[in-house]
């Protein structure tokens, strides 16, 4: 048993000749909450897909529990994925199933438990996210924050070793954000799992993450504990943490000279 449940080693990924990631190295120790931060479009979500084996890296490798993900066949990848739970950006609840059936879905697919036990398990998971009373509702009847909590309950339904969060705070009100923050930390500690969070919300993430990676221009720009990063003098981290408009990440998209384009 390795100390790092997920290791990303010299990983490059790109398509159509354009590299999105250029030699990324990251480690995710067991039991920790690790955040991957970066601006929009910096390929954070793609990293989660690479860990889940939905896409193959151009170079380098991702190891989950010591196994190289892209070398697994379908059966092997599915075996690895059973150790993972993933919360998608907008929840990705199955719209044709009720809240209860959504949470029961992975249990029904992967186990042959009797109905009474499935019911107990689902209600326990829903209780953990505070939505036991909503088990009969359909996803369309839920608010954004509630949908995300149901999706979280579904992600942890099989007690995974790794829980991945794709933008868990996007589009939530402050109260829901706080609720999700607490849930991420408490579920991680209760299940003894490892959490990987992809986000760009500095304040919330720094309040509970153990370790943070900053991704910019396809590379790891900075890494460290939240305390270290707050004190960091690196211009990019400074800009990001303090939400400055201009800096190493320019306000303007790369363009030709302004004056010549306006033919002045």
């Amino acid at each position: 048993m390795t100390t790092n449940i997920v290791e990303i080693d010299n990983l490059s990924f790109g398509y159509k000749g354009k590299l999105l990631h250029k030699g990324i190295n990251m480690v995710f120790p067991r039991g920790k909450v690790v955040a991957i931060m970066g601006g929009s479009g910096s390929g954070k979500t793609t990293l989660l897909r690479l860990i889940g084996g939905q896409i193959k890296p151009s170079e380098g490798e991702v190891r989950v529990d010591g196994k190289v993900v892209h070398e697994q066949d379908r059966h092997g990848i599915y075996k690895l994925r059973r150790k993972m739970g993933m919360l998608f950006q907008h929840g990705a609840l199955f719209t044709d199933l009720s809240v209860f059936e959504n949470v029961a879905f992975p249990i029904r697919e992967h186990t042959d438990l009797p109905e009474s036990m499935i019911k107990d398990l689902v209600l326990m998971k829903l209780n953990a996210v505070g939505l036991r009373g909503a088990h009969a509702l359909m996803p369309a009847e839920l608010s954004g924050g509630m949908a995300r909590r149901v999706a979280l309950a579904r992600a942890v339904a099989l007690d995974p070793d790794i829980i991945m969060y794709d933008e868990p705070f996007a589009g939530l009100d402050p109260i829901s954000m706080g609720v999700i923050c607490d849930l991420i930390r408490s579920l991680n500690d209760a299940l003894g799992a490892t959490s990987i969070i992809v986000t760009h919300d500095v304040e919330e993430t720094f309040s509970f993450a153990d370790y943070v990676y900053f991704v910019a221009n396809g590379e790891v720009a900075a890494e460290g504990t939240p305390q270290d990063l707050l004190q960091s003098e690196l211009p990019f981290v400074h800009q990001f943490v303090h939400a400055e408009k201009d800096g190493p990440v320019p306000f303007h998209y790369a363009a030709a000279d302004y004056r010549s384009e306006l033919s002045l």
Binding site: Q54, R81, T95, F105, E109
Partner: peptide
């Protein structure tokens, strides 16, 4: 329309990440 929307709302991706094949399911 149903499958297109399931794909657009990442339901098919979610299924794959739960180690359930969307083609079988």
């Amino acid at each position: 329309a149903e499958i297109g929307l399931m794909k657009a709302t990442e339901q098919l991706s979610a299924m794959e990440m739960m180690a359930v094949s969307p083609i079988a399911r």
